[in-house]
């Protein structure tokens, strides 16, 4: 099942449907199909990676993050990463996004708060690095399909001492 075929009546979405959606997202990321991946986001979406000594709900307006993209900048991130001149990701690294332990943290009409564990491997220039932690999503239903309004990546690492940088999308 892919995102195109997920139809949901509000509040009636199953865990399996959410999991399928997240697996599809991971598949797009691993395949570097980033323009398609971007389509999973709403027009007012945010994508954020806080630094690792902040509370989970810290605001990027007041605290220093690693990434705090609004929808425009997320689109620009995708454009950039598809260019040869995005040197940090040329040639593209190999990645494997794994999501698990999906749980529904809250729901409202047409809106779901999801959290899951993730592990992402990144290999470039013969070195493999590991990113892991919790993904928090706010999903909404738009035109009968799940869309991401908010994706926040809470890393379990001490900064990026092992990984060095965050040039891929988690």
């Amino acid at each position: 099942m892919n995102a195109e075929t997920i139809g949901l009546a509000s509040n009636a979405v199953s865990r399996a449907e959410v999991e399928d959606f997240l697996y599809y997202e991971a598949e797009l990321l691993d395949a570097w199909r980033l323009p398609e991946w971007l389509q999973l986001f709403t027009e007012d979406a945010t994508y954020e990676v806080p630094t690792t000594n902040l509370p989970a709900d810290a605001s990027s307006d007041e605290n220093l993050f690693y990434i705090a993209d609004d929808r425009f900048r997320l689109g620009e991130r995708v454009k950039r990463l598809m260019k040869r001149a995005a040197h940090a990701e040329f040639p593209h690294s190999k990645t494997r996004h794994i999501v698990a332990n999906v749980s529904l943290r809250g729901r409202d009409v047409g809106r779901l708060d999801i959290s899951c564990s993730f592990v992402t491997y990144r290999t470039k220039d013969s070195a493999t690095h590991l990113f892991f932690g919790t993904l928090r999503y706010q999903l909404v239903q738009a035109e009968g399909q799940l869309r991401i309004r908010c994706k926040r990546v809470l890393l379990d690492t001490d900064g990026l001492r092992q990984q060095g940088r965050l040039s891929i999308i988690l």
Binding site: V49, S60, D61, E62, N63, L64, F65, Y66, I67, A68, R73, E76, R77, R80, A86, H87, A88, E89, L160, G164, R165, L166, S167
Partner: peptide, 24 residues
């Protein structure tokens, strides 16, 4: 403060649009 931090992240740091290329 908000625009300052927004500006910071567009260029600087390991998830910015510039620093990762410096690192590379």
């Amino acid at each position: 403060r908000k625009f300052r931090l927004f500006n910071f992240l567009e260029f600087l740091g390991p998830g910015g649009f510039a620093t990762p290329d410096d690192v590379e």
